[in-house]
Design a protein around this nucleic acid. Structure first.
Length: 234
DNA sequence: GCGACAG
DNA sequence: ATCTTGTCGC
């Protein structure tokens, strides 16, 4: 169930960084959504992980929601030994192996992935959402609860208000927009939204908002978070 | 050299 | 992320 790209995971930090640099150029920043690649989104999947045994085991959960009414239609969990430590900037090497295992357990592939982490808003423009989207060959959005890099103004107080997340370009020094800081609900800390793969920032913001109802996080991620921590599937 | 640092 | 009591807000 992957898109042809695959690579080894037993890497040193230096090798992991080199791999990120070599794959970053393959990330697609424009919309290419839906079944097959260019149609309406029917099912969105929230992805999250939790750790057991003091971090020795990574438990990944994926919950698939019907886009029309946000009803959960399927879910899967996968446990794998944690083979890479958490290092800021290298999070995907710690979590993606277990997440790919959970995705493989699904009976049907979702049309979009909502990931708990950054996408392009990353030191090498290759956060978890980019890495996962590329390997799973699926559109992906990065939805992080806190900042990794970049500067921004405080977004307005109303749901939907947002401010651009800016960072110096890779080569030169001009400030570039790498994502957005979104008020997903009034009265809560904003979320950091960025492109993962095959989704424009505009679309990423729209989907995050549409899927956010009672909580700070979109329903898909909220349910995946609960499931990864041991909650019941439905 | 000194902070900052997704989960 | 994870370890945890009392406390604040709606």
């Amino acid at each position: 169930m992957s898109g042809g790209l695959a690579h080894r995971w037993d890497l040193s930090a230096a090798a992991a960084i080199a791999l990120q640099k070599s794959l970053a150029g393959q990330v697609e920043r424009a919309d290419r959504l839906g079944p097959g690649g260019r149609r309406a989104i029917r099912h969105v999947a929230g992805v999250d992980v939790a750790f057991e045994e003091g971090g020795a085991i990574t438990r990944a959960a994926v919950v698939v929601l019907r886009r029309a009414d946000l009803v959960t239609v399927e879910s899967a969990v996968a446990r794998r030994p944690t083979r890479f430590p958490y290092v800021p900037g290298l999070l995907s090497f710690c979590e993606v192996p277990a997440i790919l295992a959970a995705l493989t357990a699904l009976s049907q592939r979702p049309d979009l992935l909502l990931c708990d982490g950054q996408g392009l808003a990353h030191p090498r423009r290759f956060g978890l959402a980019c890495h996962l989207g590329l390997l799973a060959d699926l559109p992906a959005i990065g939805v992080a609860k806190s900042r990794l890099i970049g500067a921004h103004a405080e977004p307005g107080p109303a749901k939907g208000d947002w401010a651009p997340l800016m960072a110096p370009g890779k080569t030169g020094g001009r400030m570039m927009r790498i994502g957005a800081v979104l008020r997903s609900r009034a009265g809560v800390k904003p979320l950091y939204i960025s492109i993962g793969h095959r989704v424009s920032l505009r679309t990423a913001l729209a989907f995050t908002l549409r899927g956010t109802t009672r909580y700070r996080l979109p329903e898909a991620i909220r349910r995946a978070d609960k499931l990864s921590k041991g909650g019941a599937p439905g």
